[in-house]
Design a protein around this nucleic acid. Structure first.
Lengths: 158, 158
DNA sequence: AGTGCATCCTCTAGCGACTAGAGGATCAAG
DNA sequence: CTTGATCCTCTAGTCGCTAGAGGATGCACT
């Protein structure tokens, strides 16, 4: 880490060892908000940290690393449960790599599906708004399309 | 509609007029689930329907059309609030078309942004999984990338 | 010492758009 | 009558946070 370690407030005389972080310092260092850190702890993604006599959380370097991992995975769109699995794999380096690969591959497929879906949506919306742009003010194409059931995007009528 | 109208159960003798639908029939006809129809009524997207003596909801053709409109708009990804606005516009044909156009255009932009975001995610995940596919079993690239904070997708570290 | 502000704590509830029962009533067929 | 399907209201949950409320602690300044 290129940033200097921050302690709880100014360093109290002997209260905390060097490198110990308050939750706020951890949040600033990782970009994860304080309530989100507490949330991750509550759902087990982060271990319960040491506490001060006044019950303030104290974090070390390993916590920084673990939270960075969590954040990175979340940024990539992995669900909390997938992150949990990935963390478990990372905690056991002797385990097979196949599970991590599978999680990543499944997630990749999911994203590709979502992209295709959104592109279909975009295409339909673009068509509708383009027809409006031709100046047909008298009848509103957007409302007309929504009202015409035969133009419904889905086909699963029961 | 090409499907025959369905009444509540078998036609009771004189209990319901032809064309009247139970909530289950409406759900089957529109593809919107029964609880979702109740939800839409509770949030005001659908008017409160007539009831039987035993408090069962009774729907007519207008309800079918309105729900189809709602579903179509939701399928296109409009939020519930946007759907509400579109319904209001549809209920007042003399109003300006500009609002519907604006809603559609804003939504189109939003979808395009989401597509771009997902494509960035896809690209990064594809890179990670491709490196795994090269057979580097000894060190797991997925876990390694997630653990390496310098490879973090986002840049907003504070 | 007091003051004021920032930070921390737990707890509750909310967001959006549904969804899943629980418990009870009605309906219709056999 | 029994049975199963359908309907009703109500509550709470899903997912991943997020926003306070109310209170305590820490720290700098006067």
């Amino acid at each position: 880490m290129s940033e200097p370690a921050q302690t709880i407030g100014a360093p109290p005389s002997g209260a905390l060892p060097t490198g110990a972080l308050s939750i706020g310092a951890l949040a600033r260092q990782t970009g994860v908000k304080v309530p989100t850190i507490r949330f991750y702890e509550s759902i087990g993604l982060l271990p319960r940290p040491e506490r001060t006599a006044s019950e303030r959380r104290v974090y070390d370097r390993r916590a920084v690393q673990r939270l960075a991992f969590v954040r990175h995975a979340r940024d990539l769109g992995f669900s909390v449960e997938a992150v949990r699995s990935l963390l478990d794999l990372a905690d056991h380096p002797d385990q097979s790599c196949a599970d991590a690969d599978r999680l990543a591959a499944e997630h990749l497929e999911e994203i590709e599906r979502k992209i295709a879906q959104l592109q279909a949506l975009r295409d339909e919306l673009a068509r509708v708004t383009a027809e409006c742009a031709r100046g047909r003010v008298a009848d509103c194409r957007v409302i007309e399309v929504l009202s015409d059931h035969s133009l419904c995007l889905t086909r699963d009528h029961h």
